[in-house]
């Protein structure tokens, strides 16, 4: 089996939330890289770039819903209807427990929906579990 470096793309506009998330994600090193983007339109530009789907690249997207310019649901929609990007796992990572956000996300094909715990210790452990699940346990689609 080929060994791919998995790139975690954190799309989050609040710099403090982002810092806490980066800290949590970095606390367990599973040999992945992390990139942070703080704006919806910038994120879409990054995701739609040819480099993103270059051979052998694997990404795990952590997506906030409330973003400047283009919101998370729109990014989700565009990714899931793009044939070359549809299989990239996208995890909504948000504060919103609103039913309509959850339903809408699943309708658009989100792979997981996680409400960030308020307690930091719980958050760190959630991020660690998330990495273990997606980077180790979960079987990735074969590389194109």
């Amino acid at each position: 089996m080929e060994n791919h470096v998995i790139n975690i793309v954190l799309i989050e506009d609040n710099p403090y939330e982002a810092e806490l998330a980066m800290r949590s994600l970095q606390s367990s090193n599973l040999g992945n890289s992390i990139i942070h983007i703080d704006d919806g339109a910038d994120a879409l530009e990054y995701l739609m770039h040819d480099d993103f789907i270059a051979h052998g690249k694997r990404h795990l997207i952590l997506l906030d819903l409330n973003l400047p310019r283009i919101d998370g649901l729109e990014i989700l929609k565009q990714m899931k209807r793009d044939e070359k990007r549809a299989m990239t796992p996208i995890i909504v990572l948000t504060s919103s427990k609103e039913e309509r956000d959850i339903i809408e996300s699943y309708k658009l094909g989100v792979n997981s929906y996680i409400v960030k715990p308020v307690n930091f210790e719980s958050f760190v452990s959630a991020m660690s579990d998330l990495k273990v699940y997606w980077l180790l346990l979960n079987q990735w689609p074969p590389a194109r």
């Binding site: 609040n14 806490l20 409330n66 948000t94 504060s95 919103s96 960030k116 308020v118 307690n119 930091f120």
Partner: peptide, 13 residues
């Protein structure tokens, strides 16, 4: 639900 929980989480974190 969405916006006010963030600052609480940030203070806690």
């Amino acid at each position: 639900s969405h916006d006010m929980r963030a600052p609480i989480r940030i203070i806690n974190g």
